[in-house]
Design a protein around this nucleic acid. Structure first.
Lengths: 156, 156
DNA sequence: GCTGAATAGTTGCAATTGCAACAATTATAG
DNA sequence: CTATAATTGTTGCAATTGCAACTATTCAGC
């Protein structure tokens, strides 16, 4: 009875594993390109992208929108400020809050990097029909919702 | 002409970003559970899973099958040996090669963890129809193929 | 207004990781 | 057979990360 031999769990069919391999493969490819071309980490690039879209937000909001840790944001922003890609100010109505935005240099960088990112994404998606892509997007949204709801894997 | 303002790149729609967030969310959930229940890292768990399926393979083969770095494998195997989840021997025909397999304790652990992993996966996939799942699987395979072929993000 | 709780961001430290160098062994070329 | 190259696995070191503690500031209750 007890240890009823379950089938041995095929790692390469296990969804979390497949997602991890896929995501790591893609991220490494991208990270390598950003690093060699611009000396940027993926975290830095994400911050640039999000500041391009939401100029003036605080570090905390950046962390929210990029799904990064606030420490990671703090350090990445530090580097970006040092490299003059990002301007930093203190909110006048709350002097704890930072007000971040791209500098001219940062906007310029975004202008270069964004097309590369898009092109890479396009290459990836090239094999999927428009319908497939919609399916995929809905599936990913669905999975993320569930993963967030399920949370820390309630156990037995 | 020059800096033709491209649309500002919506991070939350960018496939690599979405995959990364999803994968990290899932991995953290799983990692937390393994850590608190069994003191296992995800890397260790992966090795256990793959050794359950392919007893007797070498460290290099484990690295291949788990998509881990060989150093990570070496260290994780070290911990697993110390905890007596994995047995280690040297191949008689090639004394560089290690021969790894689960110990009785390791098989027992796999017997406990595998159902949890399956249950989590099932919860995740609960919102997708059978058809959706097939779509998803094909899409993921397709994307991984392409990502591997495209490689380090050529050209600018 | 004052005190204690809450929030934003930074810093220090410990643990993890990644890469290069290394030792041991086996394969290959001549 | 010998010398060189290639492969397997481990170790050392530097860089990254993650967590907790900390500072500065604002908010909430009285």
């Amino acid at each position: 009875m007890s240890t009823a031999r379950t089938a041995p769990l095929i790692l390469e069919d296990f969804l979390p594993y497949r997602l991890s391999v896929l995501s790591n493969t893609i991220s490494s490819a991208i990270a390598g390109a950003y690093a060699s071309r611009f000396g940027l980490t993926v975290a830095e690039w994400r911050i640039i992208a999000v500041l391009g879209r939401f100029p003036g937000i605080s570090a905390r909001e950046v962390a929210e929108k990029t799904a990064m840790d606030k420490v990671a944001v703090s350090r990445a922003v530090g580097r970006l400020r040092a490299a003059d890609y990002v301007n930093h100010a203190v909110a006048s109505d709350d002097r704890r809050r930072s007000v971040l935005e791209l500098s001219a240099r940062g906007r310029d960088l975004l202008g270069q990097v964004a097309p590369m990112a898009r092109a890479y994404e396009a290459k990836l998606l090239d094999g999927l029909s428009g319908e497939d892509r919609q399916h995929l997007e809905r599936a990913l949204s669905n999975l993320l919702d569930r993963a967030q709801k399920i949370g820390p894997l309630s156990g037995n």
